[in-house]
């Protein structure tokens, strides 16, 4: 069971890091590597998108390998994360549209918020069942 688990975790880690790498290439490539080439920019975005899909499939694969308690912990964490992401995202957008913050609302802030919320809620939920 542990070997299977580790295999799936490694697979998810590989697809996550390649997704981050292809995201960096698609973001900085047009300006610093291929000088806004008309074919390479959309190609890099498509590769990044496809990589993202494979990352989601690897995550689903790992999730399906969880036992019943782990599934419950992660499901609760996902619910909390989804709810908070919607509330935080809308409030953050309102702060921008009402000019209460100086800078524009950035999607990267929301992505970081989602990641941290999921991590925190998973840790808290795991402690509850110790």
């Amino acid at each position: 069971m542990k070997l299977e688990r580790n295999k799936r975790i490694k697979k998810l880690a590989v697809w996550t890091w390649t997704w981050v790498a292809t995201m960096a290439i698609a973001t900085f490539g047009p300006e610093f590597i291929w000088d806004h080439h008309p074919f390479l920019t959309p190609f890099a975005i498509i590769v990044n998108f496809a990589n993202g899909i494979l990352m989601i499939l690897a995550n689903r694969d790992l999730f399906n390998h969880f036992d019943e308690l782990e599934k419950k912990i992660h499901l609760e964490s996902l619910g909390i994360t989804l709810g908070l992401a919607v509330i935080f995202g809308m409030s953050y957008s309102l702060l921008d549209t009402t000019n209460l913050i100086r800078q524009d609302a950035e999607i990267s802030i929301l992505v970081m918020f989602i990641g941290l919320t999921y991590l925190t809620s998973t840790l808290i939920n795991s402690r509850r069942y110790r």
Binding site: M1, D67, E68, L69, E70, S126, Y129, R130
Partner: peptide, 13 residues
Amino acid sequence: AEIIGVSRQTINA
């Protein structure tokens, strides 16, 4: 946990 096919944390809980 190994026999039942769940994690040790699940047995403990």
